[in-house]
Design a binder for these strands. Structure first.
Ligand SMILES: [Mn+2]
Ligand SMILES: [Mn+2]
Ligand SMILES: [Zn+2]
Ligand SMILES: [Zn+2]
Lengths: 132, 132
DNA sequence: CTTATATTTGCATCACAGTTGCAAATATAT
DNA sequence: ATATATTTGCAACTGTGATGCAAATATAAG
């Protein structure tokens, strides 16, 4: 089977393979600095460009939490440039601070996972009252 | 009745009043640059410090959307330093891009507001499988 | 209302994340 | 094996947000 990079039609370079491996080996979403620590030597610019390319081609998606570093996690296979569909829960642990992507039936997610959910915030997209 | 600033025990200065007015007058969450445009003349440093103070004292909360500027919206009256409780929906309109805070019963929010929700993402806090 | 104290503001300067142009290096296609 | 397309590394830049400090303003006390 073709590698993820080939499937997304981008060149398969050693650097990209390393970064991809770091992200996909982690069970929770990773920050840039986590990746930087795992990479031995690396070039800052290339790393930023790699992340950008992965985002644009739907290999990874980002998770934005106010006051914290952006985190990145693998996409579903169906994700594509500008067509990411992730109707899943991003659970941040109150103890270890890790963030996990948790798949659940779209309309009934609270207390149906194996996590203990204390509080949540929903970011929805749709058409507001004003625009309908 | 005491002003919000007084209630939060911070000095009531003309600059803070202007910034607060801009945020609370808007029906949707506002970015820094929106505030900058509304203010006539202003000092960058003072604006950043004002936002920080408002966040810290529980006057406003921030809404973080990947790839977009942070937005700020008023808190509930009950919010305090490090104790913000906002179990509400952040709805971003697919047409006008505005982001609204929408109050809804915590456990059943989809399609119960006056907005047409297409997709959503949940950011929950709790204890992960691993940490239980 | 006046004065003393505490807080905020503005300025200059810095720190740091992320970006850009370009030439050299490497990957893919023929 | 060679030609072409893509990626990489370097140097330099941009924009956001933070800091130390003195001047200005707000609040508290008499
Ligand atoms: Mn995705
Ligand atoms: Mn709040
Ligand atoms: Zn709208
Ligand atoms: Zn955990």
């Amino acid at each position: 089977m073709k590698s993820i990079l080939k499937r997304k039609n981008i060149s398969e370079t050693p650097f990209r393979k390393s970064v991809l491996e770091i992200i996909s080996d982690s069970s929770s979403a990773v920050s840039i600095s986590y990746i930087e620590n795992k990479l031995g030597e690396y070039n800052r610019v290339t790393l930023y460009r790699t992340i950008k390319t992965f985002l644009e081609t739907g290999i990874i998606h980002s998770i934005s939490i106010a006051g914290e570093d952006l985190r990145y996690a693998m996409c579903e296979d169906t994700c594509q440039q500008d067509n990411h569909i992730h109707n899943h829960l991003h659970l941040q642990c109150t103890q270890c601070n890790s963030v996990y992507c948790v798949d659940l039936p779209a309309d009934s997610f609270i207390n149906k996972s194996n996590h203990l959910i204390d509080s949540f915030e929903v970011h929805a997209k749709g058409v507001c009252e004003h625009c309908q």
